[in-house]
Design a protein around this nucleic acid. Structure first.
Lengths: 113, 113
DNA sequence: TAAACACTTAAGTCAATGCTACAGTATCAG
DNA sequence: CTGATACTGTAGCATTGACTTAAGTGTTTA
């Protein structure tokens, strides 16, 4: 009974420069598949496949009206990554603070010159 | 002339649950290779390989004293990811604010009902 | 109705990943 | 000096990933 791990797919999705470029574009507002593809050096087919990865990761959502699919950013997955990073930083900062406190306590004489 | 892309390797490194577990451990303080390996369901060899990925991504640094290699977190790579994410969120929030402003302007009559 | 558009799907190729097993190489402890 | 520790390095192998080409499927436009 495997548990679905959102962070795995989200980080994986963002590891590709082409997919990050799409997310960068979408962070400024919705776009069609062709618009996303235009600046990228690959076939439309490849772009569609990248888009599927982004959607599976929950980073992007899309809906089709007529023959145009409009894509937009899903902030939820971004927020989960933000959360994980923030937790790491919290522990790291805490550890750093403890080091500082330790140094202040063991050598409170004076800063070295 | 290819440019080295730190975000690619950093995101890629964090997409693996085992490697994330190591980073989680290291965010609480330094650890030896064996300590990192203990909770993980894989051989020490595999752990060393994951560690190489993390070091190449700039997420972890290590030094060997005697026969023990001690690993610790490098906050720099984490900070670069934080920066990229923060930028996306900034654009997204801005876009959201504009939508709110637009709605407030076009329908300032009253909330529905 | 015919052509152009905007995707969509399916194969197939080739490189990169995530392991394991196995064989080392330096320490360190007695 | 001998054995246990703590890694290290290399093959080999199965899987996954990032494309491409080629052949569709609905929608609009002329």
């Amino acid at each position: 009974m495997l548990q679905y791990q959102p962070l795995d797919v989200a980080f994986q999705a963002l590891s590709d420069p082409g997919r990050r470029a799409m997310v960068e574009r979408l962070s400024q507002g919705p776009a069609s598949v062709s618009e996303l593809a235009r600046p990228l050096p690959m076939t439309l087919s490849a772009v569609v496949q990248h888009l599927q990865v982004l959607e599976a990761a929950g980073l992007v959502k899309s809906q089709k009206v007529g023959r145009v699919r409009t894509c937009s950013l899903e902030i939820g997955a971004i927020a989960r990554i933000e959360g994980w990073i923030a937790e790491r930083r919290r522990f790291w900062d805490q550890q750093y603070d403890q080091l500082e406190a330790y140094l202040a306590e063991t050598a409170p004489q004076e800063p070295d010159r």
